[in-house]
Design a binder for these strands. Structure first.
Length: 584
DNA sequence: GCCGTTTTCGGCCCGACTGTTTTCAGTCG
């Protein structure tokens, strides 16, 4: 239901308000479980697969898990365009800028409350001034060390507000795991947390090791070349910070507890909660040290994740699926999807060459594709209207096609497909006339300008583009660039319906700064029976290996081999590419 | 505040680490 202003409230807007209520309740000093209820409700709302704006009343809201009568009332107020009373009352007691303090490492609700109530601190700025005036010294529970830590925390917060892209987190963790292995001879070591789950962005990097010599491993970790600062150092757990402010946590467990610890530290937290509930129902207890019989406390299994899932009567859940999106239920029924793997990918369907803004020739790109074991590579240089990337004229295209024909004949073992990255104009039109478009094996049409158009305009633009029989694929559909640009305003459901109706393929742009469509959107789109395509958007041969991030994103969206055209052998691929043209 | 195939009342995650304290509170994941 639209608000009085005509702006639709999204599930994310509502989740944000619920999360703020939880934080404010925490500051207020409410019982932990009350705040937990609001946090859980926020998480649930964030992950719903339908829009709350479609809900008819409070009664319907209460049907949703983790939403009871109170929270249903809160949400209903928001949906009707009114202010949420609970939220308002709390904000009268504590200024909204106080929430910012919670973002500082080392500062939690208790200290935020103490700072506000006894020293009138309302924001990070206030806090900095107070510390400079030494106004923190005589506050109970705050010592000199705490003062230092808070100052450092503020510095880190200001410098490092953005989350790491998966690419950066992955590179850093590989380097660290490699160095630790070399120094200690560790065999059991792996990234854990959201990095192992391959989320698109990562906060801190978590690493787990299994070793009989825990203090020794911790010691070596703290001595790593990239350990600029040691934040914490205990017997089983330690945190360091790199020179550019990235926090890395290491946990070391006994070797025979590695599986349960890996499961625990991989998360997600919500997934773990659901698995733990199953353990409890079966008379077990599950924590990072293993699966135990509840009555006797006897250890049942702990060495591998497979054993633990197995003992609980569950299929092994791939880390990419551990997001509490129904996977635990499916694992119980033995119906988990067999998510697509890197080995199944036969080609990259979005790469550029020196014909436009790429750094390598067509031949170099093709040879790299061949080296990677691909059957085909889809060359999609920029089209006419993208002047900044010297989009190809009809004359350029003729020359490019001749070169492709020549290379296809000469190289062998790799097929270069004639493609184009078309620009979707403000009216939904694309760069070339139909007789030119008909000559491509396939096209990827993307939005490259007019990002700020309204939701309606953007949606219409995309619909018109999809109605074009020569538009095979829509590239980076939502236009987000991680940490830099928000997605455009868009009615995703309408666009997805249209893609299904017209047989338009949706790209999963695998460049780590984009990962667009993102996992949640893929998960939603999947139900429409849409087919997807992977493309790295490579502008050099080095970029082509980034396809693995696209594969991970596809897996996180529950895609199987059949859902991704890059897994199809060439003849079937070409058949699908021709299908839409043939309709018209 | 939410939930229920042990429960409509009594559970919900709790262990590790730091810092300020002398036996524990706050934070984090």
């Amino acid at each position: 239901m639209p608000m009085a202003t005509g702006i639709t409230v999204t599930n994310q807007d509502i989740a944000k308000i619920l999360r703020e209520i939880a934080e404010l309740l925490e500051i207020k000093g409410e019982t932990y479980f009350k705040t937990l209820a609001y946090t859980r409700a926020a998480d649930t709302v964030d992950k719903l697969d339908f829009d709350l704006s479609e809900v008819k009343g409070e009664e319907e809201l209460r049907q949703i898990k983790n939403i009871g009568s109170s929270i249903a009332k809160n949400i209903w107020e928001i949906l009707q365009g009114r202010e949420c009373q609970k939220h308002r009352e709390l904000l009268l007691q504590f200024p909204p800028t106080l929430l910012e303090l919670l973002e500082i490492p080392g500062l939690g609700p208790k200290r935020a409350k103490a700072l506000f109530e006894s020293r009138g601190v309302r924001s990070i700025e206030d806090l900095v001034v107070l510390i400079k005036d030494h106004g923190l010294r005589d506050l109970p529970g705050f010592g000199e060390k705490t003062e230092q830590n808070i100052l450092r925390g503020i510095e880190q917060y200001r410098r490092h507000r953005e989350r790491l892209t998966i690419f950066r987190a992955d590179s850093i963790s590989r380097r660290i795991v490699e160095e630790l292995r070399r120094r200690t001879g560790l065999e059991l070591i792996s990234p854990a947390g959201s990095l192992r789950r391959m989320r698109d962005t990562i906060g801190d990097i978590d690493i787990l090791a299994g070793s009989a010599e825990r203090p020794y491993v911790i010691g070596e970790f703290c001595n790593l070349s990239s350990a600029y600062e040691v934040l914490a150092r205990g017997d089983t757990k330690s945190s360091i910070r790199t020179a550019d402010g990235i926090q890395i946590d290491l946990r070391v467990v006994e070797r025979d507890r590695y599986g349960s610890a890996l499961m625990y530290f991989t998360g997600s937290k919500e997934h773990n909660v659901q698995v733990r509930e199953i353990a409890v129902a079966l008379g077990y207890k599950l924590n990072e040290y293993g699966l135990f019989e509840r009555a006797s406390d006897r250890l049942v299994v702990s060495a591998t994740e497979e054993e633990i899932y197995g003992r609980l009567g569950l299929q092994f859940v791939h880390p990419y699926l551990r997001e509490a999106r129904g996977e635990v239920e499916m694992a119980k029924e033995g119906k988990l999807p067999r998510i697509v793997s890197l080995e199944e990918v036969r080609g990259d369907l979005h790469v550029h060459s020196t014909y436009t803004d790429g750094g390598n020739s067509i031949k170099e790109m093709a040879l790299e594709a061949k080296r990677m074991g691909y059957e085909y590579v889809g060359l999609t240089d920029h089209a006419l209207n993208l002047k900044v990337a010297s989009g190809l004229t009809v004359k350029d295209l003729k020359r490019q096609f001749e070169e492709i024909d020549y290379l296809n004949e000469k190289l062998g073992g790799i097929r270069i497909l004639k493609g184009s990255e078309l620009n979707i104009g403000l009216d939904g039109s694309v760069d070339y006339d139909p007789e030119i478009l008909a000559q491509f094996d396939f096209t990827v049409a993307s939005i490259h300008g007019g990002f700020g158009r309204s939701r309606e305009e953007q949606t219409q633009r995309l619909i018109r583009a999809m109605e074009n029989p020569y538009v095979t694929t829509i590239g980076h559909l939502t236009g987000r660039i991680i940490n830099k640009r928000e997605p455009y305003q868009l009615d995703l459901e309408t666009v997805l319906e249209k893609a299904a109706e017209t047989g338009t393929i949706l790209e999963i742009n695998s460049f780590p700064d984009r990962l667009d469509l993102k996992d949640d959107d893929i998960f939603r789109a999947r139900r429409y029976g849409i087919i997807f395509s992977l493309g790295t958007d490579a502008h050099s041969t080095q970029h082509m290996e980034l396809i693995r991030f696209g594969v991970a994103t596809a897996g996180r969206g529950w895609l199987e081999k059949k859902d991704l055209i890059n897994t199809y052998p060439l003849p079937e691929l070409l058949k699908i590419f021709g299908r839409k043209k043939a309709r018209l």
